[in-house]
């Protein structure tokens, strides 16, 4: 699991690469926590994530809760069909705002999307 970070127009873009499971979940959580600040805006690019285990979904939800607690916003980009379905069936998806393109993700965050709903 590798994570790259860049900042674009004040938005933190985190690009994940690799599988998210119990062996990588904790390090992912710790890495992401560093970018969760008051009113943060995070675009999480999951194009490189082919598999997300139960532990991985939990990291996503904990991240979401932390972001919301800081009145920040988060949008998920390029979620694979399979992960998207798993998240829907297990109830994790309903929390998240999704984007299918980079520009859409930036626009959603700039227009106030990705907060609690």
């Amino acid at each position: 699991m590798e994570i790259q970070e860049e900042t674009i127009n004040g938005i933190t873009v985190l690009t994940l690469d690799g599988e998210v499971d119990s062996s990588t979940a904790l390090s992912l959580q710790e890495a992401v926590e560093a970018y969760i600040n008051p009113h943060c805006r995070i675009l999480m690019n999951l194009a490189g994530v082919g598999y997300m285990s139960s532990a991985g979904l939990r990291v996503m939800l904990v991240t979401y809760r932390d972001v919301i607690a800081q009145e920040g916003r988060i949008v998920l980009l390029h979620l694979s069909e399979e992960i998207r379905y798993v998240m829907e069936a297990t109830g994790f998806l309903s929390h998240f705002t999704l984007a299918d393109s980079f520009d859409e993700g930036i626009a959603l965050l700039e227009n106030g999307h990705g907060s609690a709903h």
Binding site: S53, S54, L57, Y85, V86, A89, T90, G91, F92
Partner: peptide
């Protein structure tokens, strides 16, 4: 009975059903 059973997420899937 879980679409996500192969990922061992049947617990979450059933709980989500009950919640909904």
């Amino acid at each position: 009975y879980a679409a996500t059973g192969r990922y061992d997420m049947q617990m979450d899937e059933l709980k989500n059903l009950i919640k909904e």
